[in-house]
Amino acid sequence: MASISLKVNGKVYQIEAEDDIPLLWALRDHVGLVGTKYGCGIAQCGSCTVLVGGVATRSCMMPAKSLGEAEIITIEGLAENGGKALQDAWVEHDTPQCGYCQAGQIISAAGLLKSNPNPTDEEIDTAMRGNICRCGSYVRIKAAIKTAIKKGGVVA
């Protein structure tokens, strides 16, 4: 067992976990934030995406102990970190169907808007390409991102 310190949504958590625990399971099982989902376990579907230092990161393969002092933002903390316009746009466009992938989708969009507050259609497509939606709501996802941009959805 290892003592691991994680800074999540502005709060520091000290957890005792296996040395190789992925961030996903540290967040879900030790911190109690279950908005981040397990999808494939090999960083290919995007369901587990969180922001690490402002960058969209797949948490299922990221060792929790490797993060040091990096700020982690999950779907639960996104609104307090500039993501409210993005989340509101998701609701406005009735984006989720089953909803399983949506936390990862929103976090990936937040990472895009943090690095590029006014992306082109091609840049949106490229940034979101790694997030799989089993229900196929890609058109609504893109529309929600564009609405968030119009409403100043820049993420802090």
Rank of each mutant, 00 (worst) to 15 (best):
I21S: 01
I21Q: 01
P22I: 01
P22G: 01
L23E: 01
L23R: 01
L27K: 09
L27W: 08
R28P: 05
D29G: 05
D29R: 12
H30T: 02
H30R: 15
V31L: 03
L33K: 10
L33D: 04
V34E: 04
K37H: 12
K37G: 07
Y38H: 10
G39Y: 02
C40H: 06
G41R: 08
G41L: 08
C45H: 08
G46V: 09
S47P: 02
V50Q: 03
L51T: 01
L51E: 05
L51S: 01
L51P: 07
V52S: 02
G53P: 11
V55R: 13
V55T: 13
V55Q: 15
A56W: 15
A56P: 14
A56T: 13
A56E: 12
A56H: 13
A56I: 11
T57I: 11
S59P: 07
C60G: 09
C60W: 12
M62F: 03
M62T: 15
P63R: 12
A64V: 02
A64I: 00
S66K: 14
A70T: 03
A70I: 02
E71F: 12
E71L: 14
I72Q: 00
I75W: 04
I75R: 08
G77R: 07
L78W: 02
L78H: 06
L78P: 06
L78T: 04
A79R: 15
A79I: 10
N81V: 04
G82A: 06
G82V: 06
K84Q: 13
K84A: 12
A85R: 15
L86A: 05
L86R: 03
L86Q: 06
Q87R: 13
D88G: 01
D88P: 03
V91A: 10
E92H: 12
E92C: 02
H93L: 10
H93Y: 14
D94Q: 11
D94F: 09
T95P: 11
P96Q: 04
Q97K: 04
C101A: 02
Q102E: 08
A103E: 10
Q105G: 09
Q105K: 15
Q105R: 14
I106K: 14
I106A: 14
I107S: 07
I107W: 08
A110E: 01
A110V: 03
L112W: 13
K114R: 15
S115K: 15
S115C: 00
N118R: 15
P119G: 06
P119Q: 05
T120Q: 09
T120F: 06
E123D: 06
E123S: 03
I124L: 09
D125A: 12
D125F: 04
T126R: 11
R129W: 04
R129C: 05
R129E: 14
G130W: 07
N131C: 05
N131W: 05
I132Y: 00
C133F: 09
C133T: 07
R134S: 00
R134M: 01
C135H: 04
C135M: 07
G136L: 04
G136V: 04
S137T: 15
S137I: 11
Y138L: 10
Y138Q: 13
Y138F: 14
V139R: 15
V139D: 14
R140K: 15
R140P: 03
I141L: 05
